[in-house]
Amino acid sequence: MIEDYMHPSAVNAVADIRIISKGAFRRRFTLAEKVHIKVSTDPVVKVLEEDLLATSNVDLDFQPLIEGLDYLISVEILTGERKAELLKNGAHGEQG
């Protein structure tokens, strides 16, 4: 096998998926979180929602996205734990 001739770390090396589709990112939110965002009258929440709708892919390392999630934490739509879950590496089926 080729693995017999490769360094063990090279065999398990898989590139992190940090850009996922908009749909994949949206599916990471719970129904309750989506509803809170939808019914919010906070203009910042609305801008964040519009920004997400205007993109095809979501870069999980994009600083404005991270700041937007921090804002959702500050208005108690998300928790810090949920932010970490939302920003975890993508799976192959989530790629943008």
Rank of each mutant, 00 (worst) to 15 (best):
T79P: 07
L86V: 06
V35G: 00
I77M: 07
G93V: 05
I77E: 05
I2A: 13
S74D: 15
I19L: 11
F25W: 14
R18G: 04
N12F: 09
L65A: 05
S40L: 07
D51G: 07
V35E: 10
Q95A: 08
V58M: 03
D42T: 06
A13F: 15
I19T: 13
R27Y: 12
N57Y: 11
P8I: 11
I20T: 03
E67C: 06
G93T: 12
G23S: 10
D4G: 01
M6C: 09
S9L: 08
N57S: 13
G96D: 12
A54M: 15
I2R: 08
A15S: 13
L48R: 00
F25E: 04
I37N: 03
T41E: 15
E50V: 07
E76R: 14
D61W: 05
A32N: 08
K88M: 01
H7S: 08
Q95D: 01
E76P: 01
E67V: 13
L53E: 15
D16T: 05
I2D: 13
V11Q: 08
E85T: 06
P64N: 08
L72K: 00
G23R: 03
H92S: 04
Y5H: 10
D61F: 11
E94N: 07
A91K: 11
E49C: 09
N57G: 10
L52Y: 02
K34F: 00
G80P: 04
V47P: 00
D70W: 06
D59W: 08
L48K: 01
E94T: 08
Y5I: 09
I66W: 05
L86G: 02
Y71L: 03
K34H: 01
D61V: 10
L52R: 03
N89Q: 14
H7Y: 11
G96P: 15
Y71I: 07
V75A: 02
A54H: 14
V44S: 09
D61N: 13
D16R: 10
S40G: 06
I66D: 10
L69P: 03
D59N: 15
D51A: 13
K34L: 12
V14I: 15
D51H: 14
V47H: 06
A84P: 00
G80V: 04
T41Y: 10
R28S: 08
E94W: 06
D61C: 05
N12W: 02
V14D: 01
G90R: 02
I66Y: 10
I77Y: 09
D4M: 12
V44P: 01
R18F: 09
M1R: 12
V35H: 07
P8M: 10
Q95S: 04
